[in-house]
Nucleic acid binder design. Structure first.
Length: 467
DNA sequence: ATGTCC
C-alpha cells in the first residue's frame, strides 16, 4: 500500500507520487482528488497499481488517476496512461475487460411533469425491448461476414442496416468507428460469444436510465447541447459484452506468453503488454478497435430499441436525439504536447472519459443518484491528455456490497425517492447499492475545480432499468 | 465487466 504521506499536493486537488518513491518508476504518478477523497483512495491497492503503471516502457509525463479511481485488473479503474507511439507499449489491462464500455445520452422534447405517471410503463417497455443479464442474446443473430461488417463498421454499420439516424454518427466519439479495426484479429470464439449480443445491456453496473435535467450550471453550453431544465433524457451504459471480454482474455494470454521475448520484467503479471509496434501489439490494437466498434454498434442498436419503446408509449411524434456517446474503456492514438513537443501517443483510458475542449463529457453516478453532463476544457489537454473521470467509482467490492445490502430496503429507498426500478436480479441490484460508491457530486467537483471539464447540467433518475 | 472456473 502507498501511504498517504508519500503524496504531495502540488496544486489544489493534484497530488504527486515522485518517481523516487520506487526505483523502477519511469515517471511520477499523479492523482486528481480532494484531501478527503485521497483518504478513501489510499485504502485499496489502486495507488500501488498506479505506481506499477508508471514503470511501463514508453510511458510519458505521468501515470494518472482520476478522483473516481479504484482497484482494477492490473491498472486501476479511473486511470489514464499515455505511451510513446514508437517506443511504448499497449496493454489490455490498461483498457479493461469490457472494451469500450461507455455511456450515451439521448434527449427528448418532453418535460418531467408530462411523463411522471408513465414511468412504470416506459420502464417495462425498455425492459422488454432491451434484453439484459449475463450471456443474454438479443433481436439479431449475426453470421460469418455479418459480424465482421459490424466489427469493422461500428455504429456506421448500424446506419447502413437502418438502426441509426445520420445525425447519430456525428454525435459519437470517433464517429462510432475506429479505422484500425480488423475482424481477422478477433478470435472465432469471441465472435461466437458476441454474435447475438448486439442490442443487449449485460449486467453489473450496466443500465438504462430515464432521467430529467434537475440543474443547469452553464446556460450557454446547455443550450448548445440542446439541454433545458426538467427535460427528460435517457442514459445508456453498456459495452462490448462477451465479445470484448473474450478479446481481452485472448490477448492477455498471448501477451503473457511474449513478455520474455521482449525482455519485460513486470511488477505485476496483470500488466501484460507488448510494444505497440510489435506483431502482438498490433494484433491487439486491431482486435481492441474491432471490439470498440462492436460496443458502439451495441449502444446504437439499444438506442433503436429504446426509440421504438418510446414511440409506443409516448406516440409516434416523440423522438430521442443523440446528445453524445463516450467510451470509458479504450486506447486511442492521439497527438499531445509532451515537453513542448507534439508527440503521437497511445492513450489508455480505463474508467476514464475523453474530455477534449468543447466535447460533452457524460458521467453517470451510482444507481439512483443521477448523472452529470460536463464540457471538456482546454486545460484538460495539458493536465490529463484530454481525459476526465467516468463515474462515481467504487468504495466497496461487489462481494462486500452484496453482503452489506438488503435488496428490499434498497428498493424501498429508491421508490421513496419516486424512482421506478426494473431490476433483472436482486444480487445484481445489491452489488450496485449507492453505499458501495463514492459521492458523484464530490468526484465531479474535483474535475470542475481543477479545470479539466466544466459542469453543464445535472440529471436525476425517474426510472432505472438494470441488468 | 464476464456463458462470474477449461
Amino acid at each position: 500500500m502507498v501511504p498517504k504521506s508519500v503524496l504531495k499536493e502540488i496544486s489544489p486537488c493534484v497530488w504527486e507520487i515522485p518517481d523516487s518513491y520506487r526505483n523502477d518508476m519511469r515517471v511520477p504518478a499523479r492523482v486528481y482528488a480532494s484531501e478527503r477523497m485521497l483518504g478513501q483512495i489510499v485504502r485499496d491497492r489502486s495507488l500501488e497499481q498506479l505506481v506499477n503503471v508508471a514503470t511501463l516502457p514508453g510511458i510519458v509525463n505521468h501515470a494518472l488517476a482520476m478522483p473516481d479511481v479504484h482497484e482494477g485488473y492490473g491498472f486501476p479503474v479511473g486511470g489514464v496512461a499515455a505511451f510513446d507511439y514508437d517506443e511504448g507499449i499497449i496493454s489490455p489491462g490498461g483498457i479493461g475487460y469490457d472494451i469500450n464500455c461507455g455511456v450515451r445520452l439521448l434527449r427528448s422534447s418532453l418535460v418531467k411533469d408530462e411523463v411522471r405517471t408513465r414511468m412504470a410503463e416506459i420502464g417495462k417497455a425498455i425492459r422488454i425491448d432491451v434484453p439484459s443479464g449475463v450471456g443474454k442474446g438479443g433481436m439479431l443473430s449475426l453470421k460469418g461476414k455479418q459480424i465482421d461488417a459490424v466489427l469493422e463498421g461500428g455504429a456506421k454499420r448500424m446506419l447502413e442496416l437502418g438502426y441509426a439516424l445520420e445525425a447519430d454518427i456525428d454525435h459519437i466519439e470517433s464517429g462510432g468507428r475506429l479505422d484500425a479495426a480488423d475482424a481477422a484479429s478477433v478470435s472465432d470464439h469471441a465472435k461466437a460469444r458476441g454474435h447475438d449480443q448486439l442490442g443487449t445491456m449485460g449486467a453489473g453496473n450496466h443500465f438504462v436510465e430515464v432521467e430529467y435535467v434537475s440543474a443547469i450550471y452553464d446556460e450557454t453550453e446547455a443550450e448548445r447541447m440542446g439541454l433545458f431544465r426538467n427535460q427528460v433524457c435517457v442514459m445508456i451504459h453498456t459495452g462490448s459484452r462477451g465479445l470484448g471480454h473474450q478479446v481481452a482474455t485472448d490477448y492477455i494470454r498471448l501477451m503473457n506468453g511474449s513478455l520474455g521475448k521482449f525482455g519485460f520484467a513486470l511488477p505485476d503479471r496483470e500488466l501484460a503488454c507488448a510494444p505497440f509496434r510489435s506483431p502482438e501489439g498490433q494484433s491487439y490494437w486491431k482486435a481492441m478497435s474491432a471490439a470498440a466498434n462492436f460496443a458502439w454498434a451495441n449502444r446504437q442498436l439499444i438506442t433503436w430499441e429504446i426509440r421504438e419503446a418510446w414511440k409506443r408509449v409516448f406516440g409516434s411524434d416523440e423522438n430521442l436525439e443523440l446528445l453524445y456517446d463516450v467510451a470509458h474503456n479504450i486506447a486511442k492514438i492521439e497527438t499531445h504536447t509532451v515537453g513542448g513537443v507534439r508527440k503521437k501517443l497511445v492513450v489508455h483510458r480505463k474508467g476514464a472519459t475523453r474530455a477534449f475542449p468543447g466535447q460533452p463529457v457524460l458521467i453517470p453516478g451510482s444507481m439512483g443518484t443521477g448523472s452529470y453532463v460536463l464540457c471538456g476544457r482546454e486545460a484538460a489537454m495539458q493536465k490529463s491528455f484530454g481525459s476526465s473521470c467516468h463515474g462515481a467509482g467504487r468504495t466497496m467490492s461487489r462481494t462486500r456490497a452484496r453482503k452489506e445490502t438488503n435488496a428490499e430496503t434498497l428498493l424501498c429507498q429508491l421508490s421513496a425517492q419516486g424512482i421506478i426500478v426494473e431490476a433483472g436480479s436482486k444480487a445484481g441490484l445489491t452489488e450496485e447499492a449507492p453505499a458501495a460508491y463514492k459521492d458523484v457530486d464530490e468526484v465531479v467537483a474535483v474535475i470542475d475545480d481543477c479545470g479539466i471539464a466544466k459542469k453543464v447540467a445535472r440529471l436525476k433518475p425517474l426510472a432505472v432499468i438494470k441488468g
